[in-house]
């Protein structure tokens, strides 16, 4: 089973996780820029973080034969701190980089006016740079947050087929699907979705435009949840092709909209054999 985790925060994970992910079938990841737990206080710490997502993390991933891309943005939570907002002025020089496959994660946290501005500004940045956008839906007041998000997307220059709405669940999936956006689901040990509910959603709504991710980070999370979903899909009667569509082809198609997806990883192992493995599909 080949797996593309379209939303995982590897910065917060150990190298052992990369090893386990590869053993589970993960061959590609996208790491969205996010909040690190400790609030930042200046654009400079964003820039070091962005540099890491374009330097150290792809190197670490390549050691385990995993293609690493990222999405960059000012996240919704820190969009509320005026000390951080100037990072928006630095984003254009990052959004031209080869491994940046979307603007994200953007969206709402507390649905404030500052978040309105950051979301609209960054949807425009995505349009300006021919990039799709990864849009997070808020954890609190999610359905209202989804509706407000879709309103802003409709008013933006970005067509819905270039937008992935993430962290969806049972109350939000139908309206998100009707919008024409791509549908992201995060599978967690305790919160968000779990494997069984995920498979039930796939049965009810189909695998079209659906992406499943672990969203693993520094919290209680599991980078192998994508594999668990794939295994449960097969156990519950979905075909191998269905699983491949959800766990590989859909994320390849969505992030491929950037024209920058490169799934050909040169493994930089300690032995440095430099063997290049064509991953296909991209």
């Amino acid at each position: 089973m080949r797996i593309f985790d379209p939303h995982i925060h590897m910065t917060s994970r150990t190298t052992d996780d990369y090893e386990a992910m590869h053993a589970a079938g993960v061959r590609a990841v996208v790491e969205p820029a996010f909040w690190l737990g400790q609030p930042r206080t200046s654009p400079a710490s964003f820039l070091d973080y962005f540099d890491s997502l374009l330097g150290w993390e792809p190197f670490r991933a390549a050691q385990y034969g995993i293609a690493h891309h990222c999405t960059l943005a000012l996240n919704p939570k820190e969009a509320n701190d005026p000390r951080c907002v100037p990072v928006l002025d630095e984003l254009p020089r990052y959004l031209v980089k080869d491994q940046v496959v979307a603007v994200g994660e953007i969206g709402y946290d507390s649905m404030t006016p500052a978040e309105d501005i950051a979301l609209a500004t960054q949807l425009q940045l995505a349009a300006d740079h021919a990039l799709p956008a990864l849009v997070h839906t808020p954890h609190r007041d999610k359905l209202a947050g989804l509706r407000r998000t879709l309103d802003v997307v409709r008013e933006s220059a970005l067509p819905p087929e270039r937008v992935l709405i993430d962290h969806l669940n049972e109350p939000t999936v139908k309206e998100a699907k009707t919008s024409g956006c791509w549908l992201g689901f995060s599978v967690y040990p305790d919160t968000k979705m779990d494997e069984k509910r995920m498979v039930a959603i796939l049965r009810a709504h189909g695998p079209e435009r659906v992406l499943v991710n672990s969203a693993a980070d520094w919290g209680r999370s599991d980078p192998l949840k994508t594999r668990r979903v794939g295994d449960l899909m097969l156990a519950e009667g979905f075909t191998e092709d269905d699983a491949d569509r959800v766990l590989w082809r859909n994320p390849v198609e969505f992030y491929g909209l950037s024209g920058r997806l490169n799934l050909d990883v040169t493994v930089t192992e300690a032995t440095h054999e430099g063997n290049s493995v064509l991953r296909g599909g991209g």
């Binding site: 020089r93 031209v96 980089k97 080869d98 024209g259 920058r260 490169n262 050909d264 040169t266």
Partner: peptide
């Protein structure tokens, strides 16, 4: 310089 990879291949 930034986009050389996707234009010419890595």
């Amino acid at each position: 310089l930034a986009e050389a990879g996707r234009r010419c291949g890595s």
